[in-house]
Nucleic acid binder design. Structure first.
Lengths: 188, 188
DNA sequence: TGTACATCAGTGAACGCGCGTTCACTGATGTAC
DNA sequence: TGTACATCAGTGAACGCGCGTTCACTGATGTAC
């Protein structure tokens, strides 16, 4: 079957977006191409018309996550009390409950490090986040700690069983970060 | 072959320790029982004389990591300027380079959350860490942020390619945490 | 002390399964005449 | 306008492989006599 001009590009994009969801929800290793393609009503053989390997898809999906993250943080860090808003959003129960649509670091960083699949895409995304956060701090050397605390707290809060402990990790970290960054940037 | 009284217990322990190393280095999913047993000069079939499933081994290995972590933190948090020493040790290049012997949170938390394999062992270990850290802070509500920042920074520093960026994550976070906790606990 | 037997940690072939990847193929559509 | 052909996104069977798990087995040792 021959399709309209941009049909192939659209299919490719659908694969990338579904992969970005599943990688974050289940992990890269645990996401099979067969299942992934079936979820899009496609057969697995067709995958290789779009990507030369699973690794190439991983790279693409990371790029997609990174650009999504860029958008969200950029828009979130532009209103009133931008950093506080961002922290509250990042360390929210909503974000904790939806890893598939969330920040890729708490879900994918460990696995990418272990698989030796780290890519410049991750580096650039981390650098961008540090720069964005640092721009809203009096001393931008604290940016690494703020980012690390957000990523770590979200990951830990998703890994414990007890809901109270999970809430505590999320809420205490949020309160501490708000207090610390609020002190750096006096609020109106 | 019939072996000495505690031979079986010793073998079991060797399996648990090798698993704890490999799970942290490669991830749980990526660690095969075949390879694991071969590394101990055993055949894979014998595995089930010790554990009823891989899941049971995961649980055991987590328990082992947790007790190891207990020991390290307890001894590390008992000298002079205990929290500062602990932070420096945790966010060191040595710890970054040896995930197999290090804290299980940066390597395993994401995967355990994704696999729905979270276990009370993790909860207890997180609680213990929070309590230990909180005991050395003026306001123990900051414990969650301190732990999250350490876990997040170590994980992120292992996931980036650029050594400078990796160092920055580690060192900036360390400096920030030392400054923050040092302010809470005035040093002699 | 010497022999027969029971134990059971460890062996290794085999199971079904899903993985990533390859490939000969289909068939609806756009193009050429 | 109508017909023949080329294109190529997507199909689905097949590949070798390693996974977790099962099982009939081995054979060195401790125990019983």
């Amino acid at each position: 079957m021959r399709y309209s001009e941009d049909h192939k590009a659209q299919t490719r994009q659908r694969i990338v977006e579904e992969a970005a969801r599943r990688f974050r929800r289940d992990g890269v290793h645990a996401t099979g191409l067969q299942t992934l393609m079936k979820a899009l009503d496609l057969t697995h053989g067709g995958f290789y018309a779009h990507f030369k390997s699973k690794d190439e898809l991983v790279e693409e999906a990371l790029r997609y996550c990174a650009s999504e993250l860029d958008e969200i943080t950029t828009s979130s860090l532009s209103g009133d009390q931008p950093l506080a808003t961002f922290i509250r959003h990042y360390l929210s129960k909503g974000h904790r409950a939806t890893p598939a649509q969330g920040c890729p670091f708490p879900t994918l960083s460990a696995e990418l490090g272990q698989r030796g699949q780290a890519s410049p895409v991750t580096d650039e995304s981390v650098s961008n986040r540090l720069a964005q956060i640092g721009a809203h701090l009096e001393d931008d050397q604290h940016a690494a700690m703020v980012l690390s605390a957000m990523v770590g707290a979200l990951m830990l809060s998703r890994s414990v069983v007890d809901p109270q402990l999970s809430d505590r990790l999320l809420e205490d970290t949020r309160a501490s970060l708000l207090k610390l960054t609020g002190a750096d940037i006096p609020q109106s």
